[in-house]
Amino acid sequence: MDKNRIAGAYLQGEEFEKAANAAEDFQREHPNHPLRFRSILIQGKSIIKIGHTREGRKVLLNLAKETPDLRIRNEALMVVGRSLVDEGRFKEADEIFSRIDKESSLYKKAAKARRYLAGAEEIPLKSPELAGLLGAILPGAGHLYAERRGSAVFAFMFTGAFATATMEAFSNEHNELGCGLAAITGLIYAGNIFSAVNVAHNHNLKQTKAFKERIMDTTRVGMWVGGDGTFMLSLGWCF
């Protein structure tokens, strides 16, 4: 009994390994205790927080199947759904959220998350391949496509200046200088294509992160419900 409370306290204090170990100890010492399911929930959450997301989700999905307690079941599903959202697996997350009971207090949050998830395909992503191609055709065009106007102007002018200098060197028969400048221009041109691809990737990362954060905020479970009928409120503050 105490070990289960200790595990919960560790989880609240973000000592996830200790929480998982304490919960496991509790299950071993009290295999038939009614708080066993609560303990498995703590264990599953902790395993996910440690970073072993697949194992944690497996524990929680088994728990959702086995437990007769609907609150625990729904909370486990919510945690699994959030973990899938965090990994960008939006369709699977939507399926998990759809399994949360209508009677549950978490249902509204899950329904809201599902509404957001329905728009996952509308996230304004940019194609890195297209950005690279545009950058190859006209230096700066790839940046412009990825909504980086300042970089686009700079890329165009910088590459253009070196290309002009190279042509001038050759037209004035400074062939050695021209060759040197041509090599530098080639690297800058290749860098411009790389940069266009990179800014498109960064744009996508930023957009996906914002989308995920909106769902994560919606599905946050702020209150930890004690399995023995007691409520445990957690207070958090930032400074």
């Binding site: 940046h143 980086r148 106007r149 300042g150 970089s151 102007v153 700079f154 890329a155 910088f158 690297l187 800058i188 290749a190 860098g191 411009n192 790389f194 940069s195 990179n198 800014v199 960064n202 930023k206």
Partner: peptide
């Protein structure tokens, strides 16, 4: 390394927004 250096010089131009 060279490509990344060029990329940095380019995207530094509007880094304040990103």
């Amino acid at each position: 390394g060279t490509l990344m250096t060029v990329d940095r010089l380019f995207h530094e131009a509007d880094i304040e927004k990103h």
